[in-house]
């Protein structure tokens, strides 16, 4: 892992070496050094000047970015750049790490999610999460999907619950494969099916945003393709923020892309623009495979 000193070394050429910051990139408001437009016209979630510390170490440095309705925002960057850390701020999963400290402002539809009055349970019901490694509960397929609605009291009758389970599995594109084995353990499915089960599980509580932390890194190419299709379909109803190591994946599934480097948000923009015409040298180096 790179330490702080190396970080300075790596960053300094981009800052000092020639290339005056491209003027049109900084379009408006939040005071940030990020290149490109971090805001959107109608955000569902806004983050402003977010810093994350693990004990003494700063993992995220002054990140501001908006998330729009019905968009897929991909976050890319080399290992250890803080993209997963930032993702976990969005549903306060970092709360579980004792040494983690988050400052700055993160708002979900205008409500500060780090406010004392915000209930983390409600927040996580609205901002669902899919993890790197498929982690279905060691219970039946049905129970996996029914768990969220059950704890949040979303279904009053068994029939309602059955319907939620079926709809969620259908949306996750898993229904046809598992409809005859709903009572079998979720852990018995294949890796790709497990990940889709986890997606079904999180959409069962009908969230606004789904966070995906490298959802395909443990899957084979076919399962990956299936999940990518699914992400595209889910965009009709949800906002999705996806962290990925695969630039092709980011290019395929997302509308906007954010490039992180050592805790800094370097560049944000339309995916097509970022991939064809990155403004920052760091972004370009990463995308062209010069490091990463």
């Amino acid at each position: 892992m790179l330490n702080q000193k190396q970080a300075v070394l790596l960053e300094s050429p981009a800052q000092t070496n020639d290339v005056p910051p491209p003027a049109p990139a900084k379009i408006q408001e939040p005071d940030t050094k990020t290149v490109g437009r971090v805001t959107v016209d109608k955000p569902i979630m806004t983050t402003r000047n977010v810093d994350v510390y693990y004990g003494e170490k700063q993992a995220i440095i002054d990140v501001s970015i908006d998330i729009a309705y019905n968009e897929v925002l991909s976050m890319i960057g080399p290992s250890g750049c803080g993209k997963s850390t930032f993702l976990r701020c969005l549903n306060r999963m970092n709360d579980t790490i004792e040494s983690a400290r988050v400052t700055g402002k993160i708002e979900l539809e205008g409500h500060d999610i780090y406010d004392k009055k915000t209930d983390v349970v409600t927040l996580r019901a609205r901002v669902g999460m899919v993890f790197q490694k498929p982690n279905p509960f060691p219970k039946s397929v049905y129970e996996n999907v029914a768990y969220g609605p059950r704890i949040h009291g979303l279904a009053r009758k068994q029939a309602e619950l059955d319907e939620i389970v079926q709809t969620s599995l259908q949306r996750a594109g898993l229904w046809e494969e598992v409809k005859d084995r709903l009572s079998e353990p979720g852990t018995g499915l294949s890796g790709g099916q497990q990940q889709r089960l986890c997606i079904a599980r999180s959409i069962a509580v009908n969230p606004d945003i789904i966070l995906m932390d490298e959802p395909c890194s443990a899957l084979d190419p076919i399962a990956t393709a299936r999940i990518e299709e699914l992400i595209d379909e889910l965009r009709q109803n949800y906002s999705i923020v996806i962290v990925t190591h695969s630039m092709q994946q980011a290019a395929r599934v997302s509308q906007r892309t954010a490039y992180f480097h050592l805790g800094d948000l370097i560049e944000v923009g339309e995916t097509s623009t970022i991939f064809t015409n990155p403004q920052e040298k760091l972004t370009e180096d990463y995308l062209t495979g010069r490091f990463g």
Binding site: M93, L123, N135, P136, G148, I151, S202
Partner: peptide, 15 residues
């Protein structure tokens, strides 16, 4: 008990 199970549950909004 693997942490992924805890994260899964917390991520669903379980207390």
């Amino acid at each position: 008990v693997p942490p992924s199970i805890r994260e899964g549950a917390l991520g669903m909004g379980a207390s």
